[in-house]
Every structure is written in structure tokens, then in C-alpha cells.
Nucleic acid binder design. Structure first.
Lengths: 159, 159
DNA sequence: CAAGATTGAGCCCTCAATCTTA
DNA sequence: TAAGATTGAGGGCTCAATCTTG
């Protein structure tokens, strides 16, 4: 065996994480586009809005959750607003800020999309890992995520 | 607890995978740029070339391994060639194909970069997971990767 | 005609600068 | 002055079309 630094275990682990993530992401996005006409990006934003009680999130919070810069989120919401799936509302107590709010059309679109998408995940991830393994993976990834992307945890944003 | 479809376990698992991957990727890329002036993309390509016995790989194989389209790889190699880190060589037995070959400058650049990068991985991943957990994560991700991104496994490309 | 690689067009993201409000 | 959001400029990726060789 060649024991040089290019085959280091830690390098391999990170490589595996990036590869499986982008591989799975591509597979799922293709299906998502076919089934629901939503990009992975749109799906993520719409789900995060749908999860909140009022179907709304501050632009800055949503940017953190969606792993996007404020700039990137602004343009993403522009496109979703053009499509009628989201609208902006200004924050009454802080006039600098705005909310992204799920529209009725957006809610029905994401509601229709989520079922088939979960089936697709089941098909790809379920073929690779058992239920127990998925649970283990989830808890490991959660630990990693908490150390590596601060702010990704929803928390409660009052306003 | 709200038991609606938007909080489904399977959705969460995929979300966690994408978040931890992009979070870790950003963290590491920032350090990599500071320390070695290499993007994550360049690092990956150079490492894959450095790993092979002859320091060379077919364009199409490298594209698969780097999770890039042939088009994307062509442009990436263009930039690496401009920088003098990689050169192209034509394949003598199949005149349609080319190799990307690591230059001497490329080899010394990636050799210098890999040590600090591994330290960075240690610092971020090591802070989140124990050695045992990392091993478990690696084996789970390998299973997932094998089901989800075919062709990512090196194999031997003869020519 | 199929396969390997490249080129042109278009999309989306990031960084830096800007504007408004706290 | 800082924070939230947006805009302009620039870079990199993908898709579709093209060229060459098998």
C-alpha cells in the first residue's frame, strides 16, 4: 500500500462527504425538476418557509438557513416572487428588514412537491442504507453540522 | 410536536448532508486559499492527479472523479494550465482523447498544500467527532456514495 | 453513428460598494 | 457607526451544439 499524504484518511473522509452530497443532490434535483418543476434551491427555501408557523422568515435568517449570502438570497427571492410563490413584506418594528412570505400558490406548490420528493429520497438513500444506518448517519451529521455551520439552526427570530 | 411532512426524517437527513457538506466545504476552502492560494476545486484536481502513479488522468475520468461535466473540466484545466500547474498531453493510442498531467510546479504546490489542509480538517472535523465516529461516518458515506455517484471510484484507466 | 473534448450562451453565485434605518 | 438588504461586476458551472476521431 502506498502510504503517502495524498491518501490520508481525513482527506478521504472530506472527499466522501463532498462527493456523496453533490451526487445525491444532483440525483434528487433532476427528479425534483421533472416531478415538480422546482430547483433544489427553490425547494429548500419553500420548505423552510412552510415549516414556520406564520410561513414567513426574515431575509437574513433565511439566508443563513439556506447557506446563501444575503446577496444570493435577494436574487433567489426575486425569482420566486416573479413566479408568484413568495412575496416580500416589510417588518413593522424594524424598517430596515423584510420578510419572505410564502404565498398560497407557493404553499400548494411545495405541499404537492414534498411527497414525491420524499419517495425519491427513500429510493436513493433507502437503497444504500438501512433504517438504523440512516439514524446513525443523521446523528453524526448533526454533530458535524453544529460545529461547522453556525446559524443553520432555525432558532426563534422574533420581530 | 408538529408531525407534518415538512419535518420528515428523510428530508432532514438529506438537509443535514447538504448543509454539513457545504458548511465544511466553505470553511476549508477559506483556509486553503489563505494558506496555499488554491481553490477547493484546484486542490481536488491536483490531489487526484498526484495520487496516480504517472501523475496523469484522462480528461473524461478526471471529470467523473471531480463531479464536473466534461465542459466544466475543460475550463478548469485551462485555468490550471495557464497557472503552469497542469499540462495537457494527447493520448497516443486514441487521438480523440487527452490527458491532464501534473507539472513539477503542480506537484510541489499540492505537496506543500496537503499538510496544512489536513491540519485544518483535523481542527474542524476533529472538534466535532471522535476517531471512532469519523470511522463510522466514513463507512456510511462510502456506502451512500457508491449508490449515488457511479464512476467516482477511480478504477484503472488503461491507454 | 458514437465517443472525447471543446466552445458559445446563459444562469446563478459571490464579493464589494451603496442605500436606508437603528 | 453598525445592521439589513440590494445592486453592479466578475467568475465558474451547465446545457446544447460542434469538431475530430474510432
Amino acid at each position: 500500500v502506498a502510504a503517502n499524504a495524498f491518501d490520508d484518511d481525513r482527506l478521504t473522509l472530506v472527499g466522501l462527504l463532498l462527493e456523496s452530497s453533490s451526487g445525491l443532490g444532483r440525483t434528487l434535483e433532476r427528479r425534483l425538476l421533472e416531478e415538480s418543476g422546482l430547483s433544489a434551491q427553490w425547494f429548500e427555501i419553500l420548505v423552510r418557509l412552510a415549516r414556520t408557523p406564520e410561513h414567513r422568515l426574515r431575509m437574513s435568517d433565511l439566508a443563513l438557513q439556506a447557506t446563501l449570502t444575503p446577496s444570493g438570497l435577494t436574487r433567489a427571492i426575486d425569482r420566486l416572487e416573479e413566479e408568484g410563490l413568495v412575496r416580500r413584506e416589510s417588518c413593522p418594528t424594524d424598517r430596515r428588514g423584510s420578510f419572505a412570505v410564502l404565498s398560497a400558490a407557493g404553499l400548494s406548490r411545495i405541499t404537492a412537491a414534498v411527497g414525491p420528493h420524499i419517495k425519491d429520497i427513500e429510493a436513493s438513500v433507502g437503497a444504500a442504507l438501512t433504517k438504523t444506518e440512516r439514524a446513525t448517519l443523521e446523528s453524526l451529521l448533526r454533530k458535524l453540522r453544529d460545529h461547522v455551520s453556525p446559524g443553520a439552526t432555525p432558532a426563534t427570530s422574533d420581530c
